[in-house]
């Protein structure tokens, strides 16, 4: 479905190689997670494989079409959801999806059925005929997702898709990713949500400083699922025992701060000029009270 071989990308006027010798092969019916820190090269890789950025070396094949040699055929098979949800804001939601559907040659009756279904799923029916400029962040993300799916792409590429979405829409996207793959299509998505990747993806790749450090199976491999977080932290060079333990503890337990300090925080939050001494007195008083409670 997608074959990336020895992909190299270097931005003009930059000494750094953004993406270096990346190799990925995705099979039909697979959900593939792409992990990495901010600036690791996730978005650059995605932009190369969707045709947004030219690349300096290697090759990308989508459904057997070489992106460099047959870009139009390759693009016909891709649906892309960007991370910045940029859309033509002067068009209405329906106009935008219609425009995209025209470009991908989706017949009117099929498009109508799909559009109605997606608008209902993402609760956009009431906003569909309004200009996109009036949409919220999440609504723009949803219209991007609908536009990316309107031609039922073989390869669905999403760059941090869950950002800014409400829980219901997130659940819908997850359900749809599963449904899309069940039909023999492929999903490639980048994310910072390790828990979601662990539960959803068949395979995962971790990229660090432009290079893929590790690719491993998650499906039917409880050990890999179990160790995803620690592998991610170690691979990306961000592993710190205390930090990782905090992260693991947050996953397991209640992460709310202690309520006993709340009184003090409210008092100290407002500190107008001239009232500083008064605030300090209150702080001393609160500290003493807390010490007393602790001692008892």
């Amino acid at each position: 479905m997608l074959t990336i071989k020895h992909l190299v990308k270097k931005y003009p006027r930059s000494d750094r190689i953004a993406v270096n010798d990346i190799n990925i092969e995705l099979k039909p019916g697979e959900i593939f997670g792409f992990l990495g820190q901010n600036g690791a090269g996730k978005s650059t890789t995605i932009k190369c494989l969707t045709g947004i950025l030219p690349f300096d070396g290697g090759s990308i094949e989508v459904c057997g079409y070489d992106l460099a040699k047959e870009p139009i055929m390759a693009k016909f098979n891709i649906g892309y959801v960007p991370d910045n949800h940029s859309v033509y804001e002067k068009l209405t939601g329906v106009e935008y999806v219609n425009y995209v559907a025209d470009l991908y040659r989706v017949p009117a009756d099929i498009r109508k059925e799909r559009l109605e279904r997606y608008l209902k799923i993402f609760k956009l029916e009431n906003a569909a005929n309004r200009q996109i400029k009036s949409y919220s962040h999440g609504m723009k993300q949803k219209i991007c997702i609908i536009a990316a799916l309107i031609h039922e792409p073989k390869l669905w590429v999403l760059d941090e898709p869950m950002m800014g979405l409400d829980p219901q829409s997130t659940a819908e996207i997850i359900a749809h990713m599963r449904e899309h793959c069940a039909k023999g299509n492929t999903v490639f998505f980048s994310s910072h949500n390790l828990d979601l990747v662990k539960k959803l993806c068949h395979r995962v790749a971790i990229i660090n400083e432009g290079e893929i450090i590790d690719t491993f199976d998650l499906k039917d491999n409880p050990e890999n699922q179990e160790n995803l977080e620690i592998r991610f932290f170690k691979i990306t060079g961000t592993y710190e025992k205390r930090l990782f333990e905090d992260y693991a503890a947050q996953e397991m337990s209640d992460a709310r701060p202690d309520n006993s300090t709340q009184d003090y925080q409210i008092e100290s939050a407002v500190k107008p000029k001239g009232k500083q001494k008064e605030a300090e007195k209150i702080k001393d008083k609160t500290d003493k009270k807390r010490d007393k409670v602790k001692a008892e």
Partner: peptide, 20 residues
């Protein structure tokens, strides 16, 4: 924002790009 209903018809790529 402007609210307007659009017809769902298949247009050529040229026409879609032109309209947009």
């Amino acid at each position: 924002a402007l609210t307007t209903k659009s017809k769902i018809v298949l247009r050529t790529q040229f026409s879609a790009l032109f309209r947009r």
